[in-house]
Amino acid sequence: MKTLLAWLLWLWVAVVLWAAFFYAPLAAGFIGQSSRILFFHVPLSWTAFVAFIGAAVWSGLYLVRRQPDDDRAAAVAVELGFVFCVLATVTGALWARIMWGAYWNWDPRQISIILVLIFYGAYLALRGAIEDDEKRARLAAAYALIGIVVTPFFFFIVPRITFSLHPDSVINSRGKIEMESRMVQVLLASFVGDAALFFWMHNLRRRILALRDRRAEGESAVESKSWS
């Protein structure tokens, strides 16, 4: 059943890829085929957002329930969210090179995504700096919980309160989606594919960490037995 679902995801993403290049029309006002980056850049960014908010929720759950699995889930969500966020930054920079003539322009959107990356890079550094499992989980959870404010602020509020050369958000400042319907279809389908891929990878990585922790517990139990 799980394998069938995985193959359905393969098919879904393959169709999205085809649709991004051959079904969706080009957007007006963009150079050449550059508007097609939208179908990759925006879903990657939305998935990073989902991952970071997920990390905040799992961190909150950890602080309430103190279950190691919630800590692992939060850490994995940040790791994967970071990767999705880097990919969104790279695809955005490629588009900026075509439209604005340079990969990096210090546009408020670019600055805000870099600040998000620094925020979550610090989370990963924090985890790497503390050896004690319980202390690491507690401090990291408190830090990631702040992300529930930081992430929406940089993803959705900064772009709406600053002047930017970046194209309007999908839901624009008038609260409307002013995009050709086929483009909206491909964009949403691409987001569904990215989100499914995120949850699949999240599940695998979380299970790897659980196995590693179980093995480490087993080894320390054997060690303490041999000492006594």
């Binding site: 394998t3 995985a6 995801l9 993403v13 890829l17 699949w200």
Partner: peptide, 9 residues
């Protein structure tokens, strides 16, 4: 995509 998919599988 197929490479990543087969690796994850």
């Amino acid at each position: 995509w197929t490479g990543l998919f087969l690796y994850l599988l």
